[in-house]
Design a protein around this nucleic acid. Structure first.
Length: 104
DNA sequence: TGAATGACAAATT
DNA sequence: TAATTTGCCATTC
């Protein structure tokens, strides 16, 4: 369907896939880059229902506070992935947006 | 088809 | 300053 165009969700995938390694972006920015400012929540929804086996770097997406919105095992998993790329992440999933935020 | 949901964000109290 | 409430809008049930 080509109405909301490539399903907004495809645009989100492409945008996230464009995030360079070692960088992060917040949901709001992803939504804006995907052409749908204000749809930050949808970015999260889309990632939540992300197809298994997807190679998408979902772990490079965090909230506007520079923090991981996930919790429990998923939180730990994401922290692990980010640290593997050289990003400093606190035990709570706090990241320095000033240093790692990708502005496109 | 319609109603509910949600990995957010910004404003207000 | 921190906590709470309201707004947003595509995706899912």
């Amino acid at each position: 369907m080509a109405s909301t165009q490539r399903s907004f969700r495809e645009s989100v995938w492409l945008t996230i896939a464009s995030i360079p390694s070692g960088r992060v972006a917040c949901y709001g920015d992803i939504a804006r880059m995907a052409g749908m400012p204000g749809a930050a929540r949808q970015v999260g929804s889309i990632l939540r229902k992300l197809p298994a086996g997807s190679q998408l770097p979902w772990f490079r997406v965090i909230n506007a506070k520079g923090r991981i919105s996930l919790s429990g095992a998923d939180l730990t998993r994401q922290i692990k992935k980010l640290q593997a790329e050289g990003i400093e992440v606190s035990a709570d999933g706090q990241i320095s947006l000033k240093e790692y935020r990708w502005e496109g």
